Simulated scan of single mutants.
Amino acid sequence: MRPLIRFLLLSGTASSLLVLSSCTGLPSSGPSAGTIQSGSKAAETPYVLIPVSQAVADSLARVQERPLSAAFGAARRQSSSRIGVGDAVTVSIWEASENGLFSAGSSQQGSAQIPVQLVSENGTISVPYAGTIKVAGQSPEAVKVTIEKALSRMAVEPQVLVNVVKNNSNTVTVTGEVAASGRIPLTPGGERLLDIIATAGGPRMELHQLAVQITRGVKTETIPMEQLISDPRENIYVQSNDVVTLIRQPRSFTVFGAANANASVQFDESQLYLNQGLAKVGGLNDERANAKGVFVYRQEPVELVRAFAPNARSVHGDGTVNVIYQVDLKDPSGFFILKNFKIKNRDLIYIANSSLAEIRKFSTLVSTTVAPVAQGASFASNINDLSK
């Protein structure tokens, strides 16, 4: 029986060596901190690793979403006072004489009221004795002067008043999560984004769930509703044919790895910081977490990333780059960084396992592998003793 015992013991040793040689295949929720760090140094790495210092956190805290004022400009456009195709226009004419050109058939001697006209596709209206008048793209005052000049040879000192009674061309379309979607005419004084939203009845749900999307021509930009309200610079003037849409856009982030809970977490706060985000999932797991390996995965504009990694290059068509921010909580100042690092919508937070946790898993695997072998060897030894 002794050869049998020797075979079992050798088998146990071989099994242990096999487990040891394949420790990289141990169960894990993601890469180790060392793997992420070494991967960032590869020639064709798909991401940029940025260790977060206090200076980096402060710099990121100052960065805002691309402002609407930068995308569209903050100046008021005067085109809303211009007549456009489809507008309803009235023309009133007065003369200095009661026996003038427009006296006949008028209830008021020396004056005439031209019925309401819609500006044609050619941008014109018709005025008796003045003919076809080009009005599209002009102000009512400019059209007034044109008509007066056209009538001056026939009428007696004509005075003209041009009025737009229905502004159909200079409108903004408001839709989405507002109380009353529709087209809103612009006034010569100009309207801002919040004016237009208020005219449409305002939002019909809580502000933290909404984003405001503005489309002008082929350009579209989106901003959180709370930011639009809190930052007056973002409340830009709208222009003719803008489309303003209120979109329901709940914000969330996900947590994986050695946290006390792996979950997708929605948040209502206008500004959520990393310490608050980790607290929502119960913080780091004391038995598994590598305090040096708190990573935040995000896509950032390449211009922003180059402030920390000058050689960064965009890997996506929209000019963004994959970024992994690393926070070291072994450093006591790391908790100050948590308080200043803002979580963005769709961030992914990953907590790497500690090396001790990997050793513990390895030890568990070894013990579960060797224990049956040792029990088998003991059983064989007992049989051998009985046979003597």
Rank of each mutant, 00 (worst) to 15 (best):
L338Q: 11
L272F: 05
A259N: 00
K330W: 10
G283L: 10
F335P: 05
I236P: 01
N262G: 01
Q239E: 13
V255T: 01
I247H: 04
V243I: 07
G283D: 08
I337Q: 06
L228S: 01
K339C: 08
D331P: 10
I236L: 10
E287R: 15
V244Q: 02
Y297F: 15
N235A: 02
V302Q: 08
R288A: 14
L274D: 02
Q266N: 13
A259L: 02
F295T: 03
G317S: 14
F295M: 09
P250M: 04
P301D: 14
H316P: 07
F335D: 08
F253P: 00
I236A: 06
G293K: 04
K330H: 13
D268H: 12
T320W: 03
E300Y: 15
S270K: 14
A258N: 01
F341D: 02
L228V: 01
Q266H: 10
D347H: 08
N275L: 09
K330M: 14
D231L: 10
L274I: 11
Q249H: 12
K292C: 05
R346M: 09
E234D: 10
S230C: 05
G334Q: 07
F336I: 13
K280I: 01
A309P: 03
V243Y: 01
A279T: 08
D231T: 14
E269W: 07
A312M: 07
A261L: 04
L284K: 05
Q276I: 06
L284G: 06
Q239M: 12
D242P: 03
R298F: 04
I236S: 04
L304A: 08
I229A: 06
V296Q: 06
V243M: 03
N322L: 09
V255G: 00
L348S: 14
P250R: 05
I324G: 02
L274K: 06
V321G: 00
D347Y: 06
V321P: 00
R306V: 04
V238C: 03
F253G: 00
E287L: 14
L338G: 08
E234G: 07
L274P: 00
S314K: 13
A279K: 10
F253E: 00
G334I: 11
L246T: 03
V296M: 10
L228M: 03
K280C: 00
K339F: 10
N340H: 15
L278I: 09
R248L: 12
E303D: 15
Q227S: 12
E234F: 07
G257M: 01
S270N: 13
V323S: 02
P301V: 11
A312K: 07
F308S: 07
K330A: 14
S270M: 09
G282I: 02
F335A: 14
I236Q: 06
N345A: 08
F256K: 00
Y273W: 15
N311P: 04
E234S: 09
T245P: 07
F253W: 02
Q227C: 05
Q227K: 12
Y297C: 11
P232W: 11
T245H: 11
Y297H: 13
V238G: 00
K330Q: 15
D268V: 12
N260M: 03
R288K: 13
A279R: 10
S252A: 11
F336L: 15
V327D: 02
F341M: 14
A263P: 03
A258Q: 02
V327H: 01
L329C: 08
F253N: 02
